[in-house]
Structures are given as structure tokens and as C-alpha cells.
Design a protein around this nucleic acid. Structure first.
Lengths: 337, 337
DNA sequence: AAGTTGAGGACACTATACGTCCTAAACACG
DNA sequence: CGTGTTTAGGACGTATAGTGTCCTCAACTT
């Protein structure tokens, strides 16, 4: 009558083995409600399935799940799944780490199965993000921190060619300020500079590229559609046609009047690309190569430089620094007596 | 002779159901190498184990894994696990999101089982982080982006009371610049301001609080120790005694000369805490409350304000702005002809 | 050397799993 | 309103896997 005791024990075993580094066999058997001999057979089963379980004999021995060739199914608590989903979403939003696509598929997998209870807590967690709580969100990441739920739902829908119902906030044009519901056939999520775009087909309006941070809600409809080729060949090409040339990456070289050892000791934690130079005066200085799509981020990096420095190239950055120097001075000056 | 076909199929089924939203039963049966009837029994098994599997009948029907009360074991590809580990580490490092502890236990679970091959790729991925690749790391997060491997190993060791061998970079004192190996008994990872500290007991030197971003390597030794009470009651208290009072959080109120609607439209994505005010001149202005442990982060936020503004309180911020205004001006001025 | 813990063969009993065959019910499409 | 497709699940016989008990070894700690 379908009792499936071995399967259930196998899953619980994986769970237990991940919750603690090492378990004595007797304890495991007790928790699984089975005999010690049966436990040994279960361990053997998992080993045969490719999971690497080490055993240590003698007092204080036990079983432990170790690195193997295969990755075992990860058993998270709801809280851990929540933290993981939040981390993945913020990682995707910040655009760091090459594996953007992998980040999204991982997020999709969690989003697909995360219990509704835990899911609600994501929103709560996200809404608390502010300048105070999340310094990173403040200075660099201009576009909104993305909603893990929205991003996960979209990633899922793209993967499965499933139509989504979404709300998109228009900020310009005849529909500005509105937040109308519409259904689209998503094709791909494409990062562009610091933003994510959803390349999709609106059955009524044709192909569009929507800014993900302006999508306030995304719900899967459950209806599948047959994927069509994106005009222009692939989603990235389509996006380029829609938006024009990709935003230029600003580069600048900074000459810092301090020896490279000091600079690296102080700033090596968050920056690299330092080069040592010797000025004609014999002074030891450091060149710092920086680059970003947003000029303000470069200026933000310069906030941390505690030695005199100059911008060697990049007139744009120079212009921004001049402008900001004025703004800072007047903002500060107005408070002085 | 221990064949375990049902268990193996159950695990593969979970994998398949997470890789795609919906699967027709016939396809699943084919992939599992089993009869359709057996598949239906397998589905029933998983349902009985608490996983919510929806079915749709008729053409284009199929099975799908949906949200349930329980979180099923997540089956990641090596690449996804890698991206997840990286995301968790950077989330922990940035200190955002309340669930700091959950982030670490999740990271520990992945670190424990991630195949060595994938693990090496974490380092490669991390080493490419620079100002150019990761804007967030640049402007705000002064302390180093933490090594996922180190953080994961430490979290694991704390959880399991396992001694670790680690290398710690001294930057001051008689051992400055050295990187000696030592073994410690880790008690807890404690976030403090923008940094993480490992509260641990060095058998030779007693209780210590080590900055995690200065730990260059951490390897589990495999030997367990019996946890002792941390002096002062708990790790947080101990850390406070070691470091003195927690770093002061700087607060400031900024008056922006623009109506709140404009400010929110432009900056609402990454900041909040705006209040509308009307000046005596009748001008609509906006008050912005900002706070962070690091003054530079506050200044970084002000880089993005495109309207005239003043600092209403916080003499410290005013001083920094004045100083930076000078630095920016001279850095820019030196490039002009 | 003694005690503890994992490893695993043998055996008998149980009951589970499997495929084949069948009927029913939901759903989409023409 | 059928018709075909898809999930649902009962019945049945057979093969076979799972279980606990008992036993002997082997590795490791103290």
C-alpha cells in the first residue's frame, strides 16, 4: 500500500546530515525510528546514489556528509530559504558576479517552492531596506533594489515560457503614473548596465523591453505559450535596438600621493588595480584605475581616499567633482554660523 | 541486495520537477525509466511526504511542484550552488538583511557539500571583484568583501564546535604583517558595525575577537571541542568589552531644495525617509533623514542629490563635506590647463 | 588492553514495489 | 457535443527489496 519508509528515511537522513556536521549512528537510528542495521543500510544507499558520507569509528565517531562529486539536495529551513532568496535577489540586483543567469535560475527554484508564509516575510524584509540598513544600496546602486518575488516570478516565467500578468509603472508618456495590469509573454531577463530589463511580447502591443524595477507585481498565469524568436535575433540585440548603444563605461585614472603599500593596506579591501609610480620629485605615488557605468560611483570611491589625489584623465569625472565640490561646500557652508 | 530504485527515482523526480515548471507524466516516466503507473505511484509518494505536487489533466497537462507547507530539498546544479554561495557570502558581508545568522547557516550548508571543483571557482569569481565589476563594493563597503570559503568554513565550525586552523593577518603590534597559522576554538560570528568578528578561544592565548576580513584562510581540523562559556556571558558582550563601545551611528538631516515628488521619483529607488516641508519662502522642499556607521556612506548618498541641499545637523558630516569639497576641487583643478 | 563505534554477511519473514489491464474523470479542441 | 489526451487509481500476481536479530570484524580512543 505504498509505505515508502526507505525513501522517507533517506530524505530525513539528508536533512539531518546537513543540520549538523557529524552524527553518531545510534542517534541517527533513534531519530529515524529504525534499527541500527537499517541505518547502516540507508547510509550505504545514499553512498550508492553518489553522496559522499564519511564515517569515523571509535568513541566520538559518527557519520558526516562531505564534499563529493555530486551536490546533494539541499534541505533548508524556511528561514534559511528566505535568507537565501533575499541574498540571491540582491546579488542579481547589484549585478555583481558573472553568474547572473545562474543566480536567476537558483532564485527561480527557491521561489517556485517557497511556502507562502516565508514568502510574505521577504516583502517585510525588503521594505526595511534603507540607507541606514543597507549602505551598499545607498551610494552605488541607483536603481531600486529589486523585489525578490518579482524577479523570481519573472525568471521562472522566462524559463518555462509561461505568460505572466504584471503591473508596470509608467513614468513618462501618456500613461505616466499609471500602473495598469497587462499580460505578456516573457522571453528573457537581460542586464543592461545597472538595470535589468524584461524582454517580452505583449500580445496587443508587440515586443517590449520593460524595466524590471518598475514592475510592481508579477503573477504567473499558468498558461504556456510557444516561444517565438525575438526580433533582432536574440534578446540582447533587441534590447540594444530599443535603448540604443549601451551606456558608456566611464574610466578614470587617479594619482594618489601615497606609497602603494599604504594605499593597499587601507583600501585593498574593496578596490584593486593599483600601480606604483615614482614621480619626478622622487615621491612614491600610486595610480588607481577605476571604472563604472555611473560617474557617481567613481566619485563615491574617491570619498574614501584620505590622501591628496588628482584625476589624470576623464574630463567627465573632473566635471562631476567640480560640481559636487561646489554642492558640498555650499551644503556645509550654510550650517556654519 | 539494496536496490533502492524508489528512493533514487524520488530524488531524480524532485530534481526534474525543479528544473522545469511543468512536466507531462509520460516524459517523466520515460526519463525515470519506469512505467507510467509507477510514476503515478512515485508522485503519490512525494505527495504523502508533504510536497505539494499539482497536476493538470488534458492536453498540455502535467505535473508541477508548487508551494506547499514544507520546503522540498532543493536540487541545485553546481553552477547554481556556486552563485548561491557567492550571493550568501556577499549578503553576509554587506550586513544587510536582518537574518544574518540564517544567512550563515545556509552558507554553511552549501559550503559543507559543495564539490571541490565548484569551490575553486568561487575564488576565481571573487578575485575578479573590483570597483569596475561590483559598484557596491566600491563606495560603501569599506571592509573587504568576505571570502565565501572562509566565512562558510567559520560558520560551519561555530555550528559544530570544531577547531579550525586559520591564518590571520596582523596589521599592528609586534606581529604586524605576519600571517601565522594558529588553531582556535570558534564560538560565534558576530557582526559589529560593518565588520564581522570571530569570537574564539585560542588555547595558548585565551579568548580573542578576530576580524573576519583579516582571516586569509580557515580550514576545519576535524577535531571537536567542548564549548565553554564566553567570558562576559555571550559573544556580543565579549566583543563589546574587547572593542569598547560600538561605533557611533552618524545621523544627519538633509534639506533638499526640491518638492518631495521629484525627490522620490529620482531617489526613491534606493533611499527612503523623506519628509515634505514648506519653507518660509513658500518653496516646497524635502527633508531626508540618513544614518550610517560611516560618514563616508552618508557623503556617498549626497553624491546623487541633483538639487541644492544643506546639512541641517551633524557637524561631523559638515566637516567631511568641507574637507572633501577641497579634495575634489584640487583633484579636478589639477587637470585643467 | 578495554570499550566504543562503524561494517557487513547470513537468514527468515514480511510486505512493498512493479507491470499489466482495467475503468473513471477532468480538460482542450474542433 | 463528442473525441482524444492526460491524470487517477483499483485489482492482481509475481518478483524482490526491506527489516530486525544475531553474529563476527575492524578501526579508533583512552
Amino acid at each position: 500500500m505504498l509505505e515508502s519508509a526507505p525513501t522517507e528515511r533517506a530524505l530525513r537522513l539528508l536533512e539531518l546530515l546537513q543540520a549538523r556536521r557529524s552524527w553518531p549512528g545510534g542517534e541517527l537510528a533513534r531519530r529515524l525510528g529504525a534499527d541500527g542495521r537499517t541505518l547502516r543500510r540507508d547510509i550505504e544507499r545514499l553512498r550508492r546514489l553518489g553522496y559522499h558520507i564519511e564515517a569515523k569509528r571509535g568513541p566520538d565517531g559518527g557519520y558526516r556528509l562531505a564534499r563529493g562529486s555530486d551536490l546533494p539536495p539541499l534541505v533548508f529551513t524556511p528561514g534559511e530559504a528566505l535568507a537565501t532568496a533575499a541574498a540571491l535577489a540582491s546579488s542579481a540586483a547589484s549585478g555583481s558576479a558573472g553568474g547572473g543567469e545562474l543566480t536567476l535560475t537558483a532564485l527561480a527554484k527557491i521561489e517556485q517552492v517557497m511556502p507562502a508564509k516565508a514568502r510574505r516575510r521577504v516583502r517585510a524584509l525588503r521594505s526595511s531596506v534603507s540607507l541606514a540598513d543597507s549602505p551598499n544600496a545607498a551610494s552605488g546602486a541607483y536603481p531600486a533594489p529589486l523585489d525578490a518575488e518579482v524577479l523570481g516570478a519573472l525568471a521562472l516565467a522566462c524559463r518555462d515560457s509561461e505568460r505572466v500578468r504584471l503591473r508596470y509603472m509608467h513614468t513618462a508618456g501618456p500613461e505616466a503614473g499609471q500602473d495598469p495590469a497587462r499580460q505578456v509573454e516573457p522571453a528573457a531577463l537581460v542586464p543592461r548596465g545597472t538595470r535589468w530589463f524584461l524582454v517580452c511580447r505583449d500580445p496587443e502591443r508587440g515586443w517590449r523591453a520593460l524595466r524590471v524595477d518598475r514592475i510592481t507585481r508579477a503573477e504567473p498565469t499558468g498558461t504556456r505559450f510557444t516561444a517565438r524568436p525575438v526580433p533582432g535575433g536574440d534578446p540582447v540585440a533587441f534590447l540594444s535596438k530599443q535603448l540604443g548603444a549601451p551606456p558608456r563605461t566611464h574610466q578614470a585614472t587617479i594619482r594618489i600621493h601615497a606609497p602603494i603599500e599604504q594605499v593597499q593596506a587601507y583600501m585593498g579591501g574593496f578596490a584593486s588595480d593599483f600601480t606604483a609610480v615614482n614621480l619626478s620629485t622622487g615621491e612614491a605615488a600610486t595610480l588607481w584605475q577605476i571604472a563604472d557605468v555611473r560617474l557617481e560611483v567613481l566619485a563615491g570611491g574617491l570619498l574614501w581616499v584620505r590622501w591628496p589625489f588628482e584625476v589624470l584623465d576623464s574630463p567627465e569625472l573632473v566635471a562631476l567633482l567640480q560640481e559636487r565640490a561646489g554642492a558640498f561646500a555650499s551644503a556645509a557652508g550654510s550650517m556654519a554660523p
